[in-house]
Design a protein around this nucleic acid. Structure first.
Lengths: 235, 235
DNA sequence: CGCCGCGTTGAACTCTCTCAACGTGTGTGG
DNA sequence: CCACACACGTTGAGAGAGTTCAACGCGGCG
């Protein structure tokens, strides 16, 4: 949304814009234009500034949120005070589905990593839509299944692989995702370390080791050029 | 199913039995009798012997399976050959939802831990039901969300808590679940160790430590009496 | 009843964490 | 726009927790 009007009531042009926004959301893909329009009418779009907390542990959060631009970090704080990054969401992802059926307090935190456009849908509304357009529910099921699979992968790797393997696998994953050898970390190295179940020190040492081996090259704090992806795959 | 007839065609009495079976499945709870009957007509119940593999990694698995009695262990084998127990399913749980939308090869293994009654539903059939009875899809969504939450908890604890905390939390979880202080491990200690991200040796040592402290008492290989649950909660 | 795998115990090792100090860069406020 | 500051990142040394390897005892399934 590059231009804002001074009032909340949107003009026809903005309705069209909102609808094309909704149409691009993966979980609404495949719906026909009037179904899109119906959903768009209930969507509350908002531009959220960087570093704003969407919700925290202990709060009741009655919204399903869909990310249009920007990115969101989801993390937990364990009983012992340890901060654990669970996942990073970006365009097309949704969050807040946990309390969709049975309202409950959240057990994690969600914070924007950059200014983001986020659409909020009330849980009651979403329930109605899912009952009305079951295909959306099936898409959500598929998405959640995939998430579950990746989280299970996180468990396996934290239990079975050593630090070097986890770091290498993470870099390879980013490279595959971006389809290029020069990648930018979506989060700070501190958060990457947390995500991988490591301390920042260990992450730093492994990356330094990879650089010594000539497998990667670090630029600034977030850019990493992958020089030998095959070597990383074999770690 | 305590009595078997020698032929596959079921009598009316077994239809009724099958329907009451379906009605007790959490994800079908709330459907009316004719909806239950419709689903029951497509269900393929089977008694699976102990230690039978339902499916393995690399296979395409076109069935959603619902466990009626018995239990099933789900695990992965990581690239480095490490066996990681993901979860243990028991009565009312389902598995095989991963490939529901987009057929894909499984990345994990499922094995029965005891003789089990398991109903199989073809993915195509299930998709039809979910489109027809969206409330079932919503229940599945809620269940998957809950699973995701618990798997995320597994990640946090493996990264942030030490061995003693994880073992204690596991015991407390079992005790809370069973509502009694004498518990039986659902899987071998070897598998418990894998589930908690530990080696069997470490698990054995922690349990021995708890016993030395007078917090638990071990009987045989699977029975554990919890003598001081508050002490375990504080570990 | 026998055997194989599970479970336990011991000892040495190693990888990661922890603590500490220093260097860097990113984002903020002037 | 630049400068400053604070959080992030790096590097070093040390300690500790868990793993690994090995041997033995036991129990449960066939």
């Amino acid at each position: 949304m590059n231009h804002h009007h001074g009032h909340d009531e949107c003009g026809a042009e903005e309705h069209a814009e909102l609808e094309s926004l909704v149409a691009r959301v993966p979980i609404f893909a495949g719906l026909n234009p009037e179904q899109i329009a119906e959903i768009a009418s209930r969507v509350r779009p908002r531009v959220v500034p960087r570093n704003e907390q969407l919700y925290g542990a202990g709060e009741v959060n009655p919204y399903l949120r869909i990310i249009h631009t920007g990115s969101v970090k989801v993390y937990r704080i364990t009983e012992s005070g340890h901060e654990q990054v669970i996942r990073v969401l970006s365009a097309g992802d949704f969050l807040g589905e946990k309390a969709l059926m049975a309202p409950s307090t959240s057990d994690h935190f969600a914070v924007t990593l950059a200014e983001s456009e986020i659409c909020s849908l009330n849980h009651d509304d979403i329930r109605d839509y899912l009952l009305k357009y079951p295909s959306v529910a099936l898409t959500m099921l598929a998405t959640l299944s995939a998430r579950l699979g990746s989280t299970e992968g996180q468990v396996s790797s934290m239990a079975g692989e050593d630090a070097a393997s986890r770091v290498a696998a993470y870099l390879v994953g980013l490279a595959d995702e971006h389809q290029r050898s020069s990648i930018a970390l979506p989060i700070t190295k501190k958060d990457v370390a947390s995500y991988l179940g490591l301390t920042p020190e260990t992450l730093s040492r492994r990356l330094a080791g990879f650089e010594d081996n000539g497998w990667i090259h670090q630029h600034g704090n977030r850019r990493i050029d992958i020089l030998d992806i095959e070597a990383l795959r074999l770690v």
